[in-house]
Structures are given as C-alpha cells and as structure tokens.
Simulated scan of single mutants.
Amino acid sequence: MKRRARMLSVLTILLAGAIGIVSSTQTWLVVERSDAVEPLLIAGADALTLLAPLSLAVLALGAVLAIAGPVLRYVLGVLTIAASGVLLAGTATLLFGPPLSVAADAVAEATGLSGDSALYTIVAKIEPTGWPAIALAAWVLLLLASVFVLFTARGWASGGRRYRAASEAKHHDDGPLDAIDSWDELSQGTDPTDAAR
C-alpha cells in the first residue's frame, strides 16, 4: 500500500502538470466581436500567464517527489498545494466569468486599438472553451494528490535503499575489483589492496 501511495501521488501530480502544459497551448477563450468580424481566439498561456510556468513547476515537483526523502516530501506537498491553489483560482475566474481585461492584448493586436473604451466597444462576449474546465479538473486532482502526499508520505519507503543494498553486496563479492570499485573502496576508507593480498 505504501508503494502504491507514492506511485499514485507522483503519477497524479505529473498528469496534472502535463495537462497544464498541453492546455496552455490550446484555445481557452473565444472573444466575440461586435463588429461582426471573426472571433479572436485566446490560448491558455495568454489567458492565464502563470499557467505554463506553474505547470512546469508541478511537473518538476512530481519528478522530485518520486525520489525525495521524508522531510522533503512534506515541503514538496505544501508547495504543490500552493501551486494548485493559484491555478484553481485563476482557472475558475476564467471559466465562470472571464474579465474583459483578458481580451485586451488580443483586441489590441487585431485592431490596433487599446484602452477600456476600445474593449467595451469591440468585445461583445467572451466564451470559455472546454479547456479551462479540463484544467480545473486537473487542478482539483492536483490538490487532492498533494493533500494525500501530506497524509501518506511518512510511510513511504526510502528511495535510496536499493542503491545502498547494491553497494553493500558489491563489497562482499570476492571477485576481482576494477578501477571504479577500487575508488569506491577508497572513498569508504577501505584499502582495496588488502583484499588482493
């Protein structure tokens, strides 16, 4: 169960980060124009500027969590909760009531006009696509996985045991030592020439 808890947490965090990265390149908002010209499309990274960087950070946190020690697991869990809170708030704002300011750059680029008066004149309606809802679901999963990390991290097995066991087994081997084995022996304070005598 402990191994499954770690794997489930890490995979969920990595999945949420990957969804964030993919969604940052997709259309999140469609801006309907009052001048009957074709609508403006706003990508996720433009609608929510923290989307791509925080999604990358979540991916990194998930990768580090896979090999982290006991104390670092709690730090990473708290950081992931903070990232999910920021992403949840920003995505919910865009999904349930996108502010007019989100369209400002797209309107300025398409028309050459800027300012509040231009926005109110040109923008008829801002409609979210399905991507903000997908991202919001990913952030909820991310939050749940982060809380799960905090509750289960204490019981996770240490990641370095496998390597320590392999290293200890090598020292008990009576076979010939190569140059790397000799350096490892020296690093641990053992004289590798003693075994050869």
Rank of each mutant, 00 (worst) to 15 (best):
V102Q: 12
D174L: 14
A47E: 09
L76T: 07
D173I: 00
W139R: 08
L113P: 03
T190D: 09
S146L: 02
A92T: 06
K2M: 11
L143D: 02
T190L: 14
R162G: 08
Y74D: 09
D178G: 10
D173V: 02
D194V: 10
Q26M: 09
T190N: 14
T49P: 09
L48W: 12
L119R: 13
S158P: 06
L144H: 08
K170Y: 03
T12V: 04
I42F: 01
S23L: 05
A82L: 12
L95R: 03
V64G: 05
R3G: 14
A16I: 00
A195P: 00
F148A: 08
R4I: 14
Y74F: 15
W156I: 03
A104F: 04
A92V: 04
L141G: 15
S182I: 07
L59G: 05
A166S: 04
H172W: 06
K2Y: 12
R164T: 06
S55Q: 06
V10L: 01
P128V: 07
L11T: 11
A196T: 10
S55F: 12
S146D: 03
S24E: 00
S114K: 04
E185G: 03
I81S: 07
E38L: 01
L142I: 12
D46Q: 15
L95I: 02
L14T: 02
A137W: 01
L177Q: 05
A60P: 05
A135W: 04
V107S: 01
V147R: 03
L79I: 11
V64L: 15
F151K: 06
E127F: 05
K2S: 12
A82F: 15
E109I: 13
A106P: 06
D181F: 00
I122L: 07
A63F: 09
P70G: 10
P176I: 14
L79T: 05
P98F: 08
L51D: 03
L8C: 05
G115M: 04
Y163V: 09
K170D: 06
P132Y: 07
P192N: 12
A60C: 09
P192E: 11
G69S: 08
G97E: 00
V102W: 06
G17H: 03
V140K: 02
I67E: 09
L136M: 11
Q26T: 03
V107T: 06
W131K: 07
D178A: 08
L54S: 00
L76F: 12
Y120P: 05
A165Y: 03
T49G: 10
P39L: 01
R197T: 10
L15M: 09
V86W: 01
P99R: 15
I42S: 01
T111M: 09
I81H: 07
R73C: 12
R33Q: 06
L48N: 06
I126R: 09
Y120C: 07
L15R: 00
K2P: 13
T25D: 04
G44W: 03
L72Y: 05
A16W: 00
A110R: 12
R197H: 12
L141N: 07
T93E: 11
G77P: 11
H172T: 08
G97D: 04
P132R: 07
V64A: 13
A36E: 12
